[in-house]
Write a protein that binds this DNA or RNA. Structure first.
Length: 121
RNA sequence: GAAGUUGCACGACCGACCGCCGGCGCGAGCCGGAGGAAAGUCCGGACUCCACAGAGCGGGAGGCUGGCUAACGGCCAGGAGAGGCGACUCUACGGAAAGUGCAACAGAAAGAUACCGCCCGGCAUGACCGGGCAAGGGUGAAAUGGCGAGGCAAGAGCUCACCGGGAGCGCGGUGACGCGCUUCGCACGGCAAACCCCCUCCGGAGCAAGAUCGAAUAGGGGCGCGUUCCGCCUUCGGGCGGAUAAGGGUUGCUCGCCCGAGACGCCCGGGUUGAUCGCUCGAGGCGGCCGGUAACGGUCGUCCCAGAGGAAUGGUCGGUCUCGACAGAAUCCGGCUUAUGUGCGACUUCCCCU
RNA sequence: GGCGCCUUGGCCAAGUGGUAAGGCAGAGGUCUGCAAAAUCUCCAUCUCCGGUUCGAAUCCGGAAGGCGCCU
């Protein structure tokens, strides 16, 4: 599995998994994105969502591509492997916004992880 | 130059790197990768299934003519009518002497009528009576061919010319229809996107159609109906075949047909929610030639051009331009409709200059 | 992806060619010392754009929005 690749094994595909993450997973929200996530033993996996309220099919496809691209380029910065579902909250959104929020989420997650590690010791 | 009509074309491009989907290859890698509307799902097909689709009734769709097409509610050519100064555009464009119905309000009257009037006669001189008329007024969306002249008591196709209309004949055209002549003074107007009549077409569902393999759970519960007869075999438990009954299927109904003595019908409950095929070479694209006014057809050459299944086209950098609209394939084709940026050609009307 | 259905005041709705019923809610008036009740009045581009008709919420095309079913 390449450093910047994004293969089939790195995707969340079934409806059950999406619903499981939404109901049982942890949540992190920014102004523009919602992150549903849970720790996993395998490689980190991504699921993307774009509702019909956001726009037409062309626009929804573009958002999903951006989300996947941001994950592909930044997945090495994950503190530990996780299943992650990203849902956009607003339709005013650029690729730069997505990447910025994803990095902010990763930083938050890393800090939280370190805190927990300290507590354990 | 302005306003407009119409026919087409394109749908930002190029390179590098990191990625995504499919095919080929042991591999490095190579090749291909959204649209003109992919959209709305409004028509028409192909394809697949429904123990075949057969008839009648009902229902739906279409409706000038000729052609094209696999087919169409599409396209091409033409006719008629309507709109526009014009280029040109638009038309659900069969039937109203087959029948039924509708027309509020107004108006005398909405298919057989006379309110105000006009004219004649009467004497009781009137807000009168009897008769004639349908030109004028008024109502209305619509009032019994139009306009002019003659005629008359006043009028009226009553008569005449022109226009419109009906019928007949002739000529031209495949035909819709057109033209000409004769004849009828013209008699029962409008609405069939009201019912209806006539002609043509239509079985139903849809790739979540459907086929194969595998996994898993249960071998359940309730209700409904029936428990017949015949033949053969038998280890005498039953098995096989046939006929029908109840019931069911034939997706509106009837007949007909088919299944059927229960792996029956309906409802409830439980499990799986995987893989492969269908799945992309096709009424296919491009170019030439031939036939045809054209739509289109024929023929030769050439090309292979997405096939996903949480669903593939993005990011970064560099460069160019006119700085980029509407918008994303999901079985596949032919149309229609709607959304939308830019460029080009032809034509029309008006204005200005030479 | 495919197949159906529905849009009438703020809400629930009737109307199916001829003036858009009715109820709830809201606003204003009358009544009252004030309120409630009662009573009167007001509140509609019939989702939008065309067509047929003298006349369309109604009939016929097209568009928009919403809802449901099929794995």
């Amino acid at each position: 599995m390449g450093t910047f690749s994004f293969s089939r094994a790195e995707r969340i595909r079934s409806r059950k998994e999406f619903q499981g993450l939404k109901s049982k997973g942890a949540v992190f929200k920014t102004r523009k994105l919602v992150f549903n996530f849970a720790a996993t033993t395998g490689p980190s996996r991504l699921g993307v969502v774009a509702t019909k309220k956001m726009g037409n099919a062309v626009f929804r496809n573009r958002i999903k591509r951006w989300l996947r691209e941001a994950f592909r380029l930044n997945k090495q910065a994950m503190a530990r492997p996780m299943d992650l579902v990203i849902v956009p909250r607003v339709s005013e959104l650029s690729f730069a916004d997505i990447e910025q929020d994803l990095r902010f989420f990763q930083q938050w997650h890393r800090e939280k992880n370190e805190k927990n590690a300290h507590r354990a010791h």
